[in-house]
């Protein structure tokens, strides 16, 4: 009963506060989002669609999906491995390891891109070696993948670590004493216990992988039709005063974001249930 009364706005002041919050939200989120779609359709849906059908736009979409398709699974595997080792084992340097996982959260994406140029660029540490062997990393797909991997590194691991720490390793120990081998234990006990958190982490890293601008911008070289991902393509079009094209492409990204949001909300609903079930356990 008490929580019910506490949740109901009690006075005019409370209503005003809620209204202020909602207007702020409308101003900084809904208005810009609406602007994107309105600008995209400023010269009609025909113009917007033709901007998306342009070969450069299509190759940007393909590149974005390819980068995400490479990065997200790698990230999921790394995240699981990292969370597994942190949550189920004690080792020296665990604190440092956790800090390192968080590092991409705190450094600027530009730096995350720049490090690869410093390593693999023409004047970088391995630049002459790579040039000699005709391997292209920077200004090519490998560079985009590396930059995206670095930026999205913490997402899955950060989702999984607290959950797996909370769950402990008793269930795995039980499985082992009941005769299960390492892989059987992993696939029949560990993975099912974290599947929703894992999916949630994958979704978050996917959203970031597709939307990343800063890091990717540094390593891309902006070669139209070759190394431009969707966010970079938007920038190029905008700089060329092709507003309809820029906003049409941007609305594609915004649409992806909205889909992610819907999936995320659905998962949170599911995942919250799982979590509270595990707490009751």
């Amino acid at each position: 009963m008490r929580t019910l009364t506490a949740k109901r706005p009690a006075s005019v002041g409370a209503y005003l506060l809620v209204a202020a919050g909602l207007s702020w939200l409308a101003l900084v989120i809904l208005l810009p989002l609406a602007a994107v779609f309105i600008q995209a359709l400023a010269k009609g849906s025909e113009a917007a669609l033709s901007a998306l059908k342009e070969p450069d736009a299509i190759s940007a979409v393909k590149l974005t999906l390819l980068v995400a398709a490479i990065c997200v699974p790698l990230n999921a595997v790394f995240g699981l491995a990292a969370a597994w080792s942190v949550a189920k084992f004690d080792f020296k340097g665990k604190g440092l390891f956790l800090t390192l996982i968080d590092l991409p959260f705190s450094i600027s994406p530009v730096v995350s891109g720049l490090v690869w140029v410093l390593l693999f660029g023409a004047n970088g540490w391995f630049g002459s070696f790579l040039e000699h062997n005709h391997i292209k990393i920077v200004f090519a797909l490998p560079g985009l993948v590396l930059a995206t991997l670095l930026v999205t590194l913490p997402f899955t691991a950060r989702e999984l670590i607290p959950l797996m720490q909370d769950q402990g390793s008793d269930e795995e120990t039980a499985a082992v004493t009941l005769g299960a081998g390492g892989w059987t234990t992993f696939f029949s006990v560990t993975l099912p216990n974290v599947k929703w958190a894992l999916l949630y982490g994958v979704l978050l890293s996917n959203a970031r992988a597709m939307g990343e601008f800063g890091a990717v911008s540094v390593v891309s070289g902006h070669i139209r039709g070759l190394t431009n991902t969707l966010p970079l393509h938007v920038e190029v079009l905008y700089n060329e005063y092709d507003f309809v094209g820029a906003f049409a492409t941007a609305s594609l990204l915004a649409g992806l974001a909205l889909i992610t949001l819907i999936l995320k909300t659905g998962l949170e609903w599911r995942y919250a249930g799982e979590l509270s079930a595990s707490r009751r356990h």
Binding site: D170, E171, T173, A174, V189, N193, S278
Partner: peptide, 11 residues
């Protein structure tokens, strides 16, 4: 082996 906190497979 039987544990203090049961360690049943929750799923």
């Amino acid at each position: 082996l039987v544990f203090q906190h049961y360690a049943l497979f929750r799923h």
